[in-house]
């Protein structure tokens, strides 16, 4: 029963001020920039053209870039690809911003443009729009990246044959910075979709 034959087809890691695709560093800067500035500069350097990017919060920007790079590497994301994400901070950076607006002493005023990003699943909505994905989205909140939960869960979703692909992983963007590890799961590929392999991939570039 445990003979799942799923593989990691492509993966992206965004950490500190660097981006890695399938184990290769695509972009790295030593410059002291904010996360938002780093992501904007990555967007330009990678030659992405999607003006809505600038409206997004940092969580959406990071997720957007990761999936964009996966689509370049692995080919267009199939429309039924499920999105099963997790993180610790939910949408904390946007929550902070909305709360600051709200409790500001001078001019307390909520902005719809900020409020809409106070939900973590908005990041999945953004990439669904970008890649025209009509599929299931689930956003889990955990203390840390938990392949012990995600791997069997994703295997069971694929076993149900509602979809052949999932983009899953850890999309943590919060006060401690960015720790993103997203991967495309499918039938073919060389890297098996197992807890052990995912731990290795996640920790290898964790320095």
């Amino acid at each position: 029963m445990d003979m799942h034959t799923y593989h990691i087809q492509s993966y992206c890691i965004i950490r500190e001020r660097s981006i890695h695709m399938d184990g290769v560093t695509v972009l790295k800067t030593e410059a002291l920039t904010t996360l938002n500035d780093f992501l904007k500069s990555a967007y330009r350097q990678l030659g992405i053209d999607y003006p809505k990017f600038y409206k997004m919060d940092a969580l959406c920007k990071a997720v957007f870039i990761a999936v964009e790079l996966m689509a370049r590497k692995a080919g267009p994301i199939k429309p039924d690809t499920a999105l099963i994400f997790s993180n610790y901070s939910s949408s904390h950076l946007s929550d902070e911003k909305h709360a600051m607006d709200l409790f500001s002493a001078d001019n307390p005023m909520a902005s719809p443009a900020t409020f809409v990003y106070t939900l973590p699943n908005i990041a999945m909505g953004e990439i669904s729009i970008r890649h025209k994905l009509h599929s299931e989205n689930v956003f889990f909140i955990f203390d840390s990246y938990l392949p012990e939960f995600l791997v069997p869960y994703n295997d069971s979703v694929l076993d149900n044959q509602k979809t052949e692909n999932i983009i899953s992983g850890w999309a943590e963007v919060g006060e401690q910075g960015c720790d993103l590890f997203l991967y495309l799961i499918g039938k073919s590929g060389k890297t098996p979709h197992t807890v052990a392999y995912l731990k290795t991939l996640y920790h290898n570039e964790h320095e």
Partner: peptide, 26 residues
Amino acid sequence: VHLAVMADEIQRYFGLENRIITISNA
């Protein structure tokens, strides 16, 4: 304010063996 921390508090209250699975999807 973090959902995971809130879930941990509830888990500890009941002494649950499994971690609470938290879902935040609007």
